[in-house]
Design a protein around this nucleic acid. Sequence first.
DNA 1: CGACCGATTTGCT
DNA 2: GCAAATCGGTCGT
Length: 204
Amino acid sequence: MSGKRVPGSPDLRAFLERPVLEVAPALLGSVVRHGEVAVRLTEVEAYAGPDDPGSHAYRGRTERTAVMFGPPGHLYVYFTYGMHHCANVVCGPEGTASAVLLRAGEVVEGVDLARARRARGGDRDLARGPARLAQALGIDLGHRGADLVDGPIRLVLADPADLDHVMTGPRVGLRGAPDRPWRFWLRDEPTVSAYRPAKVITPR
DNA sequence: CGACCGATTTGCT
DNA sequence: GCAAATCGGTCGT
């Protein structure tokens, strides 16, 4: 149980292979970098494969969702409402089709470029919401399947000791199984979307 | 091939 | 608070 994790190391992929409900909260505070833009994650959501009615993998493997069924550490990107892209980190053992939706974050580098990619909103809103986060990072369908351990888009894990209050509550915007408390976020972060029923799981 | 839906965002009432 | 925008995925014909 070492506290430090080195970016790009085999340790990262091994970590992402752990169960999604373990990986999801641990991604908070971590940084996703694509080129000059870097986002520190403040809100994520877990999706648990074919048994989860809220998951795109619920109806089995399709061409779209194939990445979710593959090895952990890759990016599952989907397109929705005819205009938005959202990004997920595939995790858990290969074949479990579980993933973590990146719901919100704080742009910590490349603010100018992130601003240029978004027509509206203040800096706090640049990566607030899954579609805005993907847009700020310049992520689209072309990045589906991208390797986060060794590719253009990288994940750099945070030291768990640096995390503030980790909160959990119901997922957002779902038709199926909205009741499962599989949404995780950092308390008191201005980049986290509006309040929902919640409880603290790691008081600090 | 046609119809319907959507893990959202935005702007207007 | 509510509805429009806009198109890939999925399923049924």
